[in-house]
Nucleic acid binder design. Structure first.
Lengths: 117, 117
DNA sequence: TTATCAGTTGAGCAATCATTCAACTATAAT
DNA sequence: ATTATAGTTGAATGATTGCTCAACTGATAA
């Protein structure tokens, strides 16, 4: 994800435009965080997991059955989602129950589905 | 992005949960479209381009200068964004002016930034 | 204690992807 | 016509990523 700061290969054509846009531009770090957030929604498996958890909490096996995938694959993805603070987990006995960290996740979904349809 | 239909490696633990969730589950194609949409936001360069275009229309050179990248790199990304119907372009003389395809893009942004901050 | 099952983890692999580079098109200026 | 500039394109490359596999942890059941 790291990006070096390369030189551009052309002259400014509309200096005022560039200046104006740059003025309000969020910091690189903000864009990184934003991209990292959307990365979590940028994969069919993760998006399906998130959708499933937006209906109710589920354990890893349930999700694996639902999506027809291995526990390992699901667990790996849940790890990323946990890292991104999108899901929380709760170990009860042998099982681990996952649920959405907050309902802002649902809102992001909604916006997306609106656009897609 | 294609995904084969592999077998899961465990028994159902909560059959009712799985059934219930599966019942309202959107089709795979829907999730694919959603993931593809978010993929466009899942990269710092693209997200910065989209943000820039959400302020005003810009030509490729302007964007290249703004982001300190080559025209080629920018052009490649604009191509993806055009393919995803997120930007439109308008050739005027030697320059090509890009702008957002519609303002739903901005709304998606807003949701994202809300979450990140 | 031993066996079993839920879940995690790390290495490895194949696929995807962002950028570079060089060659190209098209428009404008001389 | 020639030259210069804006932009596009395709191949090549290095990095990232999603899944598999096998080994592991830790809790329950026998």
């Amino acid at each position: 994800m790291q990006r070096k700061t390369p030189l551009c290969d052309c002259e400014v054509i509309h200096e005022e435009v560039v200046k104006r846009v740059r003025k309000n531009m969020p910091k690189e770090a903000e864009f990184c965080k934003l991209a990292d957030l959307y990365k979590m929604f940028a994969d069919t498996t993760r998006v399906r997991i998130l959708w499933a958890l937006s209906s109710e909490e589920m354990c890893v096996c349930d999700i694996a059955v639902l999506l027809g995938m291995t526990k390992s694959a699901i667990s790996h993805q849940l790890r990323s989602l946990r890292f991104a603070n999108l899901v929380k987990y709760d170990k009860r006995g042998k099982e681990v129950y996952y649920s959405l960290a907050d309902n802002r996740v649902k809102e992001i979904f909604k916006k997306g589905f609106e656009h897609v349809r």
